[in-house]
Amino acid sequence: MTKVTMTVNGKSVSAEVEGRTLLSAFLREGLALTGTHIGCDTTQCGACTVHVDGKAVKSCAVFALDVEGADVRTIEGMANADGSLSVIQQSFQDHHGLQCGFCTPGMVMASAALLADNPKPTEAEVRHHLEGNICRCTGYHNIVKAVLAASGQDVPAVAAE
């Protein structure tokens, strides 16, 4: 066991972990932050997406010891200080950007990373950016609407509707 220390949602945390402890397992089992979901565990679905030093990563493909000293942000750190939903979270609710909700934490984290880099993405850019996040309810149209709305842009009619 090796001691790892990192900042998670603004708080410094440290724990003894094995070499094989994944960041996703450290967050869920070590810190009880179960908002980070494990969908596929094969680095494909994006449900476990968190931010490491501001970059979106799949936490099931990162070892906890490899992010020693990093600044980690999870879905639990996305709400406003007063507990109200962030703009992106509220937009997902307003535009029905979730059905079963399993992919939603990853979708929100990936979308937040996109809007930090590109505050006014086109619909095509949103879709391209979310290629690594799979929604098994196939609710993509409303997810894309939610992201566009969260960016302050008009929500277009989507072709499939």
Binding site: G46, T49, A56, V57, K58, E131, G132
Partner: peptide
């Protein structure tokens, strides 16, 4: 390559 999360790692 891959998707944004893959490209970040």
């Amino acid at each position: 390559i891959g998707d944004p999360m893959v490209r970040n790692r």
